[in-house]
C-alpha cells in the first residue's frame, strides 16, 4: 500500500515537471512548482504510514511551508518589475522541448535500470523518477533565457534530489535536513536579489543579449 502512494507521488512529480516545461507564462510555472514541492513534501508521510516521529512531522511541515509558499512568493516579488511576463523566446520551441524531455525521461529510466544498483528495497520507481526530475530541471534551466525561469529550473532539480533523499532515507539527521533546506532557500533569495539588480540595470534587454563592452575591463 505504502509503495503505491510513493510511486504515485513520483509519477506526479515528473508530470508536474513536464507541465512546467510546457507552460508559457512565468506565473503559471511558479504555481506548478509550488504544487510539485507540496507533493515532494508529503512523501515522508507515505513513507512511514502515518506512524510519524516528532521530528519527521517537523521536517514535513518546514519543507512544505518553505518550498510551497515562501519561495513562490519571493519569486513573485522578484518578477514584479519584469514588464513582459511571458517567455519572449525560449532557445527551442515548446513542442521541441517536450519531445526532448520525453527522451530525457527515457534516458533516466534506462540509466536507473542499466546501473543495477543494489538495495532499492523501498520502491524501484524512486531512482528513475528523481533522475528524470533532475534532468528535466536541467533541461528547463538550459533552454530558457529568462533569469526567473532558470531559477525555477534549478528548483525543479532540487525537488528531484529531495525526492530521492526523502523517500529512501529514514535516519537522516534533522540538522542536515534543515541545513539543506536553509541553503536552497537562501540560494533562491540571493538569486532573486540579483535578478532585481539585473532588471533595474537593463530594464528592457533580456538577460542573454547583454554583450556590451567589458565594464571593469577584466
Amino acid at each position: 500500500m505504502m509503495t503505491t502512494w510513493i510511486n504515485a507521488s513520483c509519477i506526479l512529480v515528473v508530470f508536474l515537471a513536464l507541465s512546467i516545461l510546457a507552460s508559457y507564462r512565468m506565473a503559471g510555472m511558479i504555481h506548478l512548482f509550488a504544487a510539485q514541492s507540496l507533493v515532494v513534501g508529503l512523501v515522508p508521510l507515505f513513507l512511514r504510514q502515518f506512524s510519524l516521529s516528532q521530528n519527521d512531522l517537523m521536517i514535513v511541515a518546514i519543507t512544505i511551508v518553505s518550498k510551497s509558499f515562501i519561495t513562490p512568493n519571493i519569486l513573485f516579488w522578484a518578477i514584479r518589475h519584469v514588464p513582459t511576463r511571458a517567455e519572449v523566446k525560449p532557445l527551442i520551441g515548446i513542442g521541441a522541448s517536450l519531445l526532448v524531455s520525453a527522451l530525457l525521461i527515457a534516458v533516466a529510466f534506462w540509466v536507473a535500470a542499466s546501473l543495477q544498483l543494489p538495495g532499492l528495497s523501498k520502491s524501484n520507481l524512486v531512482l528513475p523518477c528523481s533522475l528524470a526530475a533532475v534532468l528535466l530541471g536541467f533541461m528547463l534551466l538550459v533552454t530558457r533565457t529568462r533569469a526567473i525561469s532558470q531559477v525555477v529550473g534549478y528548483l525543479v532539480m532540487e525537488n528531484g534530489i529531495f525526492l530521492f533523499a526523502l523517500s529512501l532515507f529514514d535516519a537522516m539527521p534533522i540538522l542536515i535536513e534543515m541545513g539543506i533546506l536553509l541553503d536552497v532557500f537562501v540560494a533562491v533569495f540571493i538569486m532573486a536579489i540579483v535578478v532585481n539588480h539585473i532588471n533595474e540595470e537593463f530594464s528592457r534587454q533580456p538577460m542573454t543579449l547583454v554583450r556590451s563592452k567589458m565594464g571593469e575591463n577584466t
Binding site: L91, V111, S114, F138, V142, Q150, T208, R211
Partner: peptide
C-alpha cells in the same frame, strides 16, 4: 559562447562521459 547555459551542457556531457567510462 554568449549563452551561459552551454557551459552547463558541457558539465552534463562530462558527467555522462565519466559514468559511461567507469561503469
Amino acid at each position: 559562447l554568449r549563452y551561459t547555459q552551454v557551459y552547463l551542457i558541457y558539465i552534463l556531457f562530462f558527467l555522462v562521459f565519466l559514468i559511461v567510462l567507469k561503469f
